[in-house]
Design a binder for these strands. Sequence first.
DNA 1: GGTTATTGTTTGACATGCCAAACAAACGCA
DNA 2: TGCGTTTGTTTGGCATGTCAAACAATAACC
Lengths: 186, 186
Amino acid sequence: MDTWKKFDTNALTHSAAHHLFAIHELGAGYGGWARVSDIARQLGITRGSVSVSLRVLKARGLVTTDEHHMVRLSAQGQKIIENVAAKREAVRTFLREVLGLSVEQADADSCKIEHLISPQMAGRLVQFMKFLVSKESVKGDVLRQFRKFEGDCHGRSSCAVCQGNCLLAQLAKTEKVQEKKTLTDI
Amino acid sequence: MDTWKKFDTNALTHSAAHHLFAIHELGAGYGGWARVSDIARQLGITRGSVSVSLRVLKARGLVTTDEHHMVRLSAQGQKIIENVAAKREAVRTFLREVLGLSVEQADADSCKIEHLISPQMAGRLVQFMKFLVSKESVKGDVLRQFRKFEGDCHGRSSCAVCQGNCLLAQLAKTEKVQEKKTLTDI
DNA sequence: GGTTATTGTTTGACATGCCAAACAAACGCA
DNA sequence: TGCGTTTGTTTGGCATGTCAAACAATAACC
């Protein structure tokens, strides 16, 4: 139906999230204060773009400025970015420690989805990881076993995950298109 | 650095992915052919918007039209959408069957990230699920154990997942902001 | 003090993606 | 045949998010 249209009805756009992140990081050593120029440098965009974006973020009450053009997060902005940071950490850790992706790949993927995932998904993800390292989880053997796992359902319909249409085969198939057309991603 | 800017350098935007999906689904019963009106209805947008979007998708060689304005996916478009569909299924299944989210929540989350995740992440996710249902995974006990798991690290720095700054507590904390400010999501 | 950066803002431009409204062509039915 | 409906397109408008370029104000140096 219309589920897909809710894509951009999030509290934070990808851009806004990273503006707030930049202020958060840059301000860390300066009592929370950051400058437009540094934000721009950090994000790899122009000062003008930052200036415009900040106007919106100020209007939404997420950042404030003082008389010297210094920028900082509001209490609300602070809370929001801490939330996104928690989601980012949850996803990054999962991708690295559970799925075994490289640091670079984990960073790239988590960056794209960190601001989009629901509190429910993030919470369950964290809880799942806590379980995996807990005593209850078959003494932490799960991940070690997974590292050695080389299973392939070969398209068998008995596979509870793929049900005949092997997802791994499907993902591998279209990888070729990617190479041919030099798309950055599918 | 600039990792975050690659957000929109994907082969497919959220919008484009769902246009292709709509054509794919509508065409299923008609030899792959779909009409602009039906695509618009399916997506909940106007015919004009679809008309404009299709112009771009045609130029990129992802869809073709015949002399009666009928629309269908090109071979390339077909492959791309099958790939996204595989990613969607991987994520949806993981969110429902592993994390235990509701169908609605799983659909909402997977819809937002399906076109953004890397082939690597999708592949590992599928492989992980295959492992979880395999004989090697402690006889499939993992998920059953997880359902009963109620662990909480209480902010202990010994927690391998949270390391003192409990992610669950962090996520729960900002949930309140969400309620107060009636944001649709954080 | 004067010249030369550096900084933040404004402006016009472009791209994406949506809408509403106007329109012509084709269709349907009587 | 003719009238109303459906369909696809075009146009102008809005919002977001980027750039480059021009500008004023401040800072830094000699």
